[in-house]
Amino acid sequence: MQGLNFTVFDFETTGLDPQKDKVIEMAAIRVCDGQVVGEYSTLINNGPVSPKITEITGITNEELEKGLDEKTAFQILNRFIGDNVLVAHNAAFDLSFLHFSLMRIAGKSFQNQFYDTLTISRDRHFYPHKLTDMCARYDIELEGAHRAINDVYGCWNLLNKLHEESKVDSWMNKLGYLAKYGAPKWTPDYAVIFPTENKYEPRGY
């Protein structure tokens, strides 16, 4: 990963469908020469959200009313990303929301290279592979999971741990998906997608 600049990002959303659901919180950090040089985080006035989403994220409708409008939030994020390599945990989810949001707002998508820490985690480790689980495995502090900025720092630290363990360079633009659920509905046209299955730790009898 030497010589690359990164934008690690995470979205909290109103649901799981990037074509109809909306982003309600976004966060990102810019990393240059291995150092965090910028941070961006905002709520977005895309409510109302269901009680279930509030339960998962802790984000209330009252808080969202004070958030940025969607267009401004994504314009700032787009400039923040620039031509950096994108990093996310379960990147298929966040990249699809980035794509459909940009298409709706600006009429064009992105072409950034990316790393998905979930794909690498599934290849190297037994189930489970949620960000909280992976951070725990590597003794990475992760407080307040499912709030975007906390997840962003956790994801960046996880990528570094994975790279220290065994270089991740060959995983750029690769997206593994669970075969039983089928391929994602949308991925970048330059992504290398492939089916995979969770590996489970053998249990003694």
Rank of each mutant, 00 (worst) to 15 (best):
M172W: 06
E70D: 08
E143P: 01
K22N: 03
C135M: 11
G204D: 15
E55K: 13
H125M: 15
V31N: 09
D69K: 12
L86M: 09
G34L: 15
V168Y: 04
V192D: 14
I140E: 00
F93W: 02
G47H: 09
G38Q: 15
V87A: 10
L43R: 04
F80S: 01
V85Q: 13
N46C: 10
L95R: 07
A92H: 09
L118D: 13
G154F: 10
S101C: 05
G38A: 13
F97V: 07
N61D: 13
L98N: 08
I29R: 01
P202W: 05
R147V: 02
T72M: 15
A92K: 08
S41N: 10
E164W: 05
N112M: 03
T117R: 14
I193T: 11
P202G: 10
K22P: 11
G154D: 07
L175V: 00
I81L: 07
D123R: 05
E62A: 14
F126L: 15
T57N: 05
V152Q: 02
F11H: 13
S50H: 09
Y127G: 11
P195C: 06
Q2F: 00
M172E: 11
K161G: 05
F9A: 08
I105L: 04
E197Q: 11
S101I: 00
S109F: 04
K199Y: 04
G182K: 10
V36G: 14
Q75I: 12
A73W: 00
A106P: 10
H99L: 03
T196V: 06
T187L: 15
T13V: 00
A191D: 02
Q35R: 12
S101R: 02
V87R: 07
N157D: 06
R79D: 04
G176W: 07
A183D: 05
I105H: 02
L16S: 13
D17P: 00
A91M: 06
P18D: 01
Y205N: 13
F74H: 14
T196E: 14
G47T: 15
Q113Y: 09
S170G: 00
G15M: 08
R122L: 13
D17T: 06
F93Q: 07
G67K: 13
S109M: 12
N150I: 04
F194W: 14
L162E: 13
H89Q: 15
E70H: 14
S96W: 01
P195Y: 05
L77A: 00
S50Q: 11
K180L: 11
A179W: 04
I24F: 06
L131R: 02
G47W: 10
N84C: 11
